[in-house]
Nucleic acid binder design. Structure first.
Lengths: 291, 291
DNA sequence: TTGTAAGCGTTATCAT
DNA sequence: ATGATAACGCTTACAA
């Protein structure tokens, strides 16, 4: 009827806006843009708009984003924290007492509220076991930052798989803080120097770097050297050889995060931790038994 | 001083919120997420928040998104329209008279306001000329949807290059409405049947499909068949052979769109069309003169 | 059931 | 210059 609703007036009166804030390190990262996409879809269906903030992996920007969202009186915040944020106190200090906080992917388990995480332990476990089953004998690990619980879980999954399959854990062939292509390349070279014939990497870009290192030494993949990455980035299926990877389900995780927010809206309803399974995408880089 | 600003009250009073809406077909597409990332960066620096809406390539959702943004009294809208939206009347009908409208990438030149576009004509021209210079003799074209001015420009650039280099334009080897991998694959097969030894594609995914088709027939790339795509998607540099592509600059375009909004805020200031150049990334798939 | 009035916090305007 | 006041439009509580 030609009438146009004014959300600002509504928000002012109710003290809450029909808006949910999403805080991520970077929007233009496949994982996060898919998660945002999933969250936006279910929130829109339920009458909520979405404000996006990127933190550029800086704790300072994270605080700024939270402040902005608070002054917009958002009903909820879905957040995946910056890798450098080592604990969640700054989050608790900058979020309103009745703003619903949902963490996803990178979470602080000490903070209250719903958390949506990949089954990082199991994923890393399966990725590593897959390599062992393919006959690789000395499997290195490119680990991420130990400030992130997700990377800690992946490291533990890797270690557990080795133990369960009767292999030794050798700290020399675990490469910390390596998640980009360059650091993966360096880690790959060191791993080769130390006699590795395979690597499980907690990231795809670092796995790509390790593959470059192996190719550079003239090794055949997967015959001489096997690699499994993590995240199932789009490029993994397109390269030659294609890169095996533990797939996460970012779109689904975004949807779950949004749903967790919606159910938390109802008084009394409590959502705990939701674990989304990971899935082995076995491709050429680890398929020694081809044919 | 413990005081927390209420943007809702401010928006109500001023009739405008310090928020800009961004409307794109899909957030989780490399081009758009980078453009959003760029826009968000400059808007945040200037005290604006960003509300993101995806239209899923549907005109209906596009209208819904615009309505949501209007009820939030956003100061501006940065939009890249759905491919099926054939004209911009629905945009003009659903946007407030004093909301600043900025179009980017997919634009309707009939609509008023700033427009940020890639130099699609020049880009396609250079991509095609590059193939000719590499010695390919019969160059097909995978074109997109003619409802989009960007794809029309790319088609025209392709034709102009042929004409300028003294080659015939053959409508039989121009494949319309093909922008995804499957349609590119089909187009590739037909192109081969019709004697093409190269293809310029208006998209990277369709170029990938065409490459698959050529590989399937046992052709060597680039010796027997050359390919240039468009958009410089991340995977293009990682595949084997790597795919030559005309790069767009989405992050930069997002920044420019945001800047256009900010300058339009000043009364009297008019921003017209901003053309961002494209850049040839010549890789293996078209490099016949290797060595 | 339907209707009326007060008040949310900011900002523009007007009076001091 | 500084300070008081009214109004933005919606929601909710309360009255009819």
């Amino acid at each position: 009827m030609g009438y146009e609703r004014n959300e600002a007036a509504s928000s002012l009166r109710r003290g809450r806006s029909k808006v949910v804030g999403i805080v991520v390190p970077r929007i233009n990262r496949a994982f996060f843009s898919s998660a945002i996409s999933g969250a936006e879809s279910v929130l829109n269906e339920n009458g909520y708009s979405v404000i996006i903030c990127q933190t550029h992996e800086s704790t300072e920007d994270e605080i700024k984003a939270l402040r902005t969202l608070m002054s917009n009186r958002v009903s909820g915040v879905l957040i995946s924290h910056a890798i450098v944020s080592t604990d969640g106190t700054h989050i608790m200090e900058n979020i309103g007492p009745d703003t619903i906080l949902v963490q996803f992917d990178r979470v602080f388990s000490a903070l209250p509220g719903p958390k949506i995480v990949s089954d990082n332990f199991r994923g890393a476990y399966e990725g590593t076991r897959h390599l062992i089953e393919q006959g690789y004998k000395r499997i290195g690990n490119i680990a991420g930052y130990m400030s992130s619980e997700a990377y800690v879980a992946r490291l533990n999954g890797y270690k557990q798989a080795l133990t369960d399959m009767g292999m030794e854990i050798d700290e020399d062939i675990i490469f910390y803080d390596a998640i980009v292509q360059e650091t993966g390349y360096e880690a790959g070279k060191k791993a080769l120097d130390l006699g590795c014939d395979a690597i499980y990497s907690a990231g795809d870009f670092s796995a790509l770097g390790a593959m470059m290192a192996a190719k550079e030494r003239g090794l055949r993949i997967p015959e001489d050297f096997g690699i499994v990455g993590t995240a199932n980035e789009h490029f993994t299926g397109l390269m030659t050889p294609s890169l095996s990877s533990m797939a996460q389900h970012p779109y689904e995780m975004g949807r779950r995060a949004a749903q967790a927010f919606l159910t938390s809206l109802k008084p009394g309803a409590k959502v705990g931790q939701i674990v989304v399974p990971m899935e082995l995408k076995a491709r050429e880089s680890s398929n020694r038994n081809k044919r």
